[in-house]
Design a protein around this nucleic acid. Sequence first.
DNA 1: CGCCCGGTTGACTATGGTCAATACGTGTGG
DNA 2: CCACACGTATTGACCATAGTCAACCGGGCG
Lengths: 244, 244
Amino acid sequence: MQTMDTLECSDCPIRHNAVCAKCDSQELEILEEIKYYRHYEPGQTICWAGDEMGFVASVITGVCTLSQTLEDGRTQMVGMLLPSDFIGRPNRESTPYDVIAITEMTLCCFRRKPFERLVHETPHISHRLLEMTLDDLDAAREWMLILGRKTAREKIASLINIIARREAAVGLVPHSSNVVVDLPLTREAMADYLGLTLETVSRQISALKKDGIIHLEGKRRITIPDLEALIQETGDDYDGGMIS
Amino acid sequence: MQTMDTLECSDCPIRHNAVCAKCDSQELEILEEIKYYRHYEPGQTICWAGDEMGFVASVITGVCTLSQTLEDGRTQMVGMLLPSDFIGRPNRESTPYDVIAITEMTLCCFRRKPFERLVHETPHISHRLLEMTLDDLDAAREWMLILGRKTAREKIASLINIIARREAAVGLVPHSSNVVVDLPLTREAMADYLGLTLETVSRQISALKKDGIIHLEGKRRITIPDLEALIQETGDDYDGGMIS
DNA sequence: CGCCCGGTTGACTATGGTCAATACGTGTGG
DNA sequence: CCACACGTATTGACCATAGTCAACCGGGCG
């Protein structure tokens, strides 16, 4: 957790996607005053479930996960946050989820109380937050279909497809014919996301590789020679059924 | 679909829980003007996934479900809406879900365009909508844990527990020692909610009955002699882990 | 009466989980 | 430089949970 150089909001890489996307320059000035940066290392826990969380934040760089754990250790990931995503809930003092950095991360934090006041007084912020929350809800519901009704192979294909989509949306990847996906997740993290064991994840990835649907470079980099073929394996068939 | 008597907002049974909960009397007057009631029969489809939906609505009475279906017929329920819950998403012309009435229902509908303008101009509405959406998101994530990591027995116990909680919250049931739950769902609907087959649902309910955790009157009414014992079966252990 | 719908139960099967051995890559220390 | 340990991933053998297919039950209604 080291202090960061102070970045001007106007130069912020997530300026047009984050919770502040709709703010005008005057509103940005207010945010500018109450914001501060935080840095996390891979594996570091940002917040434990149930802990008091004194701030909310936007992800500027890096990836973190939200997860829930039962007493006997079974864990389920319930969200994966990429740059511009929002962490925390206004008007609640604690998260019900573990928030864990899986890569190096930089957050743009706001102390909760002043931010809550701002949400209350600034429609541009509350409207954007509503939009983002509705998107998160759609994503969670899409995930419910995956968890409840898909086979292990379909789950893996869906995960790869979704990460490819998100990387494309964030603009990391040109929408080329030969899609390359850098998995930010270990096999165990994928298992926790998909409601599988890590052995099953490994087996299904091997199977997709053997069938030529994907190609591996090292353990984490996946090449998709034919995106249509991958989508076929997700069980969704045509790429409708996906939330645009 | 029959026209209803026009109910005054001030007499509305969901006045203090619905999307209009924070509205003052002046704001209610505006709503009063654009609202209209709709009635649905059990089994009736309110909206198919992908269809244009000209209105948004609050559930006044009855229960409906949101579900997604894969081409081969596998379906997953992603939400269950009780009185005061909100149907539809501002700024989107179609739902990605099938919305199906499972009991007789009355909705308080608002044409989408005027309602969107209202959301935009009325913080009391957008703030309440944000709160409700955040609650829905928490519920969806709790459900992800159930779908991804729980056994069939734990899933059934969790469903019964959640319905008991919701019925208590809506105020249908005094929080007595001997909890009675009226399942609004068929075995098949439960299966679609829990990511199981209806046979497994039936078997697990029989097993819980045999073990004395629940008691059945008819097929749909469940008595819970010891709520703690049921919660034990959910796998959550202590009733923390639940979202309050 | 007989049909239909929702539910229950049984026999068998398949998918994914469990446990365990092995491989691979990287960083540490003798 | 090599030996070793550790974390991550792969693979195999076996098993358990839940799915499939099918028979049967019981109540309500035309």
